[in-house]
Design a binder for these strands. Structure first.
Length: 210
DNA sequence: AAGCATTGCAACCGCGGGAAA
DNA sequence: ATTTCCCGCGGTTGCAATGCT
């Protein structure tokens, strides 16, 4: 649509899903020359893609150590703990889950965990009120595009209390059944303590599903 | 069986920060 | 010191697959 007709020879940049041929070109080029310097890599490899696109494809999909398949309950728990600590710092969280990409974790959070939180909160279960409180507790200090963009209003983004003023503790006591996530709000006037216990998580069936 | 709705994930976009020129 | 360029991050979108009526 915005193709420039003047210099069509180098202006054509491919977008959308990668073909097998493109994948092979990228894999082989990186095998020979290594990754990084993505813009020049894209040109040198003869790919009609932006460096950005090449980098994304490699890091999220083609990289040999990328781990695919179901997120394990342990990984899920770790994601929740780290998200409670750091919020939407997906790449930072991903560094603690070997083989998992920030994109995968982000997608997983949005499609699975966030949805379950919402669904569970909609039902009358024990922790629902607490979950809703937490979902509504949007931190005003952090960047939060979710609250400003056109995110579906029925599926508000849960924003954990990862303000510096908040202390988040995560415990591990051997098995996951005794693990607890504790969110402590100690300066919010309207919330004295928010505990999101493992019992709550289990009741949300977050850890039962594969 | 067909059409519509929902889900899940790959990929794109815009922006900020840092390095290089 | 300033500008330009590139990388990486987080948010968002597009679409194929799947489920539902």
């Amino acid at each position: 649509m915005d193709k420039n007709p003047c210099n069509s020879q180098d202006a054509e940049v491919r977008k959308g899903p990668w073909t097998m041929e493109e994948d092979l070109i990228l894999i082989n080029y990186i095998a020979d020359h290594g990754d990084g310097v993505w813009n020049s890599l894209a040109k040198a490899a003869g790919l009609k893609r932006t460096g950005k696109s090449c980098r994304l494809r490699w890091l999220n999909y083609l990289r040999p150590d990328v781990r695919r398949g179901n997120i394990t309950p342990e990984e899920q728990l770790l994601i929740m703990e780290l998200h409670a600590k750091w919020g939407n710092r997906w790449s930072k969280i991903a560094k603690h889950l070997p083989g998992r990409t920030d994109n995968e974790i982000k997608n997983y959070w949005r499609t699975r965990i966030q949805k379950h939180i919402k669904q569970a909160a909609d039902q009358n279960f024990q922790g629902g009120v607490k979950a809703m409180e937490m979902m509504n507790n949007i931190n005003p200090h952090e960047h939060q595009a979710a609250s400003t963009s056109q995110v579906d209003s029925t599926m508000e983004t849960y924003s954990p209390p990862y303000d510096h003023d908040h202390v988040v503790e995560a415990f591990h006591h051997g098995t996951n059944t005794t693990t607890a996530l504790h969110y402590h709000h100690h300066h919010d006037s309207n919330v004295n303590e928010n505990y999101w216990s493992m019992e709550d998580l289990w009741s949300m069936q977050l850890l039962n599903c594969d």
